[in-house]
Simulated assay, not measured.
Amino acid sequence: GTASVCNTLTNTLITKSEVECLIKLYDTLVAKASRQFAGAGFDRTVFRDTLYSYFGMTDDMVLDRVFIIFDKDNTGRITVEEWVEGLAPLLRGTLEEKMKYCFAIYDLNGDGYISKKEMFEMLKHSLLIQPGDEEPDEVVKDLVDIALKKMDYDRDGKLSFTDFEKAVRDESLLLEAFGPCLPDLKSTMSFEQKIFREIPKK
């Protein structure tokens, strides 16, 4: 229930009443999505539609990764706890929390490194390559090389979290170097105004 969700989130910046608002939104979305699964949480489709409609997130590959990160128990459905815990770093996360979240999204096989192959996969999906472009794969390969030159501090040909963190602290734009996985500020603010507006100001 609300209490247990609140307890797990005491270390983040979301207040108890905001958690309640997120739970209310969750219940509404689940009810709208399907009557028969109301208890089980919502599936990938509802999740993607929600992230699209509230945060304008459209990148299919990124949305799939975000779903996997939220779905901690790997059931293919997002429970209310997973929903609130997943949204917390997106809405209010510190830079550290956002770095961990982005890194996890880009680390496709979960081995603790972002490899050249993973960078290539992510960039290939997130770049808008025009059909007429010469050798789109070459463009992506060049970008991967540039990224490695800039971010691979220990020069082992892949990015550890330490590499990633150092690079982002030097240049904050690199946080989403391999695909847009955070909602932009405008979307986040309008989400908060819409969803948290019922909270009486302290």
Rank of each mutant, 00 (worst) to 15 (best):
V5A: 09
N7M: 09
N7E: 13
T8H: 11
L9D: 09
T12N: 12
L13W: 13
L13S: 15
L13Q: 13
L13P: 08
K16P: 10
C21R: 00
C21D: 04
I23R: 06
I23S: 00
L29H: 02
S34R: 12
S34H: 11
R35Y: 15
F37E: 10
A38D: 05
G39F: 00
G39M: 00
G41F: 03
F42T: 01
D43P: 05
D43F: 11
R44T: 10
T45N: 15
V46L: 07
R48M: 13
D49L: 13
T50S: 14
Y52T: 14
S53P: 06
Y54L: 07
Y54Q: 05
G56E: 01
M57K: 11
M57L: 15
T58C: 08
T58F: 12
D60V: 11
V62K: 08
D64I: 01
D64W: 07
F67N: 07
F70R: 04
D73K: 08
G76L: 08
I78L: 01
V80W: 13
V80P: 04
W83C: 00
R92S: 12
E96C: 05
E96I: 09
E96K: 12
K98S: 01
C102R: 01
A104F: 06
D107Q: 13
D107C: 15
D107K: 10
D111H: 08
Y113N: 06
I114G: 06
S115C: 03
K116E: 15
K117L: 03
E121Q: 04
E121P: 00
H125D: 11
L127Q: 13
D133W: 02
